[in-house]
Amino acid sequence: MSTETQAVSADGTAGAPVPEFTTDEMMTVAASRSLRDGTACFVGIGLPSTAANLARRTHAPELVLIYESGTLGTKPDRLPLSIGDGILADTADSVVSVPEIFNYWLQPGRVNTGFLGGAQVDKYGNINTTVIGGDYADPKVRLPGAGGAPEIAASCQEVLIVMRQSTRSFVESVDFVTSMGYGRGGDDRQRHGMTGRGPVKVITDLGMLEPDPDTRELTLTHLGPDIEVEQVREATGWPLQVAEELSVLQPPTDHELSVLRELKATIGGTS
């Protein structure tokens, strides 16, 4: 199934027409809604950056955006292509060094939400962005590596993960733990002395997964509009647990969609 192009059409049941949108747009909007106004968010490039900037333009105008290049409270008027674009420095409350952003701002737990993606996530929310297949020294695919993610995953008060869902990306156990979620489950985070809560939501193009309160295994709690449970199971590389009370994500509003599309048209722009 192509997640890029699948459109969900209006069902017209409530009388009000529901706009057409892609599953990717639904994912970005759901991620954006998960950010509370007035909180601080450590943002990675790509989907997290799009979602965080959408939130700031819709329900969370006071959201504080922090990028690992050292820009605190940045308010870009277009989507940056990299975490160090000039627009981030130009519009920041303060620009600090890279050692400072990690040591003074991230490490003590000042940041409410860390926003991560990855190539693989497993059933305990551990993320791999390092190597796939083979072994570390001789991998099948060499990925970019850790960047800021391991410490974002450890030290933010909570973590949101945004990723497209497939059996290739949602695996029973990641090939390499680049960033720790719940380790081997249960209270593994506490055993590692971690201060942050860990991944509280995994938002995908098919719905939303949340950790079981005891085992910490990711459990399907929300479906995307017009998505079936079976579809999500088929896109998951382990036997997926499904919450007893399964909700459906509210489709994007006209306003969210138009702001998102405007925003995406500005990526990397140099206006």
Binding site: P99, F102, N103, Q107, N126, T130, Y136, A146, P150, E151, A154, S155, F176, V177, T178, S179, M180, G183, D188, R189, H192, G193, M194, T195
Partner: peptide, 20 residues
Amino acid sequence: TAGASGLPFAVLRGYAGTDL
């Protein structure tokens, strides 16, 4: 930072639970 400070190493709350 350790290199600039003339120290042999630096301490951080990092890498916990990772394979690095």
